[in-house]
Write a protein that binds this DNA or RNA. Structure first.
Lengths: 138, 138
DNA sequence: ATGCTAATGCAACGAAGTTGCAAAAATGTG
DNA sequence: CACATTTTTGCAACTTCGTTGCATTAGCAT
């Protein structure tokens, strides 16, 4: 896995800018998913709100990050630990949300189990969200 | 399953009002989940935005409807086909979102499969979202 | 029918996200 | 390294979404 932000940006044909480097760095050094608000706080409001939105959008398009569905209204973004170049890697692992600390993480080691759908429903992608208590909050 | 809106409201110790009757009726006669905007449109803006929000909130508290997690920012609410009095019924079935028509439905007949988590993660609830193509859009 | 309780509508507010545009930074080329 | 071109950023304004307080209205029990 690439951990150098410059390499990742160049590999994805993106201009290397301060905001992109900082935000990507944040994802790499965070062990959970990040909401837009987290990013704004953690970058110390160094960048404009709009820039953060647009950066996340670009990262999404390039497949660097993906969204995690949550029951409340908050979109959370996560960088996959494994190489995401396959495009649909995020459909094959389970997302875990801790009820206590709110940590949202990708359980890369767990594969989403198969499910049988009723006749007529053709599945393309599947996502699984498990809520519970994480390692640190036991 | 109760289909009379008055009965459902009374059973849940709720005052029977026009807005609650209309909105509950909408859920019963809709085959998919509804977003707040859908409800506003389909009731013909007869009720105040605030009333719709509060009605949904009350229905949530009473367990009449539940939210469906989605990757985009839209909260969708759904009434379960089966009796929801158990409280956590919605954690045991699969949600299906059609990529073409956007239909969001509860596949009541499909049970969420078990999944093994890494040591240290204690699961409490699990949800599964399958995206694909629905019966009508084949 | 009456009084009490609960729900509604209005207004105002705050948060979240988007768009257009000029200024600034990054990139490629000589 | 300097230049022209392209891309990105920041600002301002705006829309949409959701919430709160309060007076008015509607529902409910007696």
């Amino acid at each position: 896995m690439l951990t150098d932000v410059n390499d990742i940006l160049k590999k994805n044909q993106l201009s290397v800018t301060d905001s992109r480097k900082s935000i990507l760095d944040l994802f790499i050094h965070s062990n959970g998913a990040l909401a837009h608000a987290d990013i704004e706080k953690q970058t110390g409001e160094k960048f404009d709100r709009v820039t953060v939105y647009r950066t996340l959008q670009v990262f999404m398009e390039k497949g660097i990050i993906h969204t995690i569905p949550t029951s409340d209204n908050s979109i959370r973004y996560a960088l996959c630990k494994d190489d995401c170049t396959g495009g649909h890697h995020h459909d094959n692992h389970v997302h875990f949300i801790c009820k206590i600390c709110g940590l949202t993480s990708c359980l890369d080691s767990v594969t989403v189990p198969e499910v049988r759908l009723p006749v007529g429903f053709r599945p393309l992608e599947k996502q699984m969200i498990v809520t519970g208590i994480c390692e640190g909050c036991q």
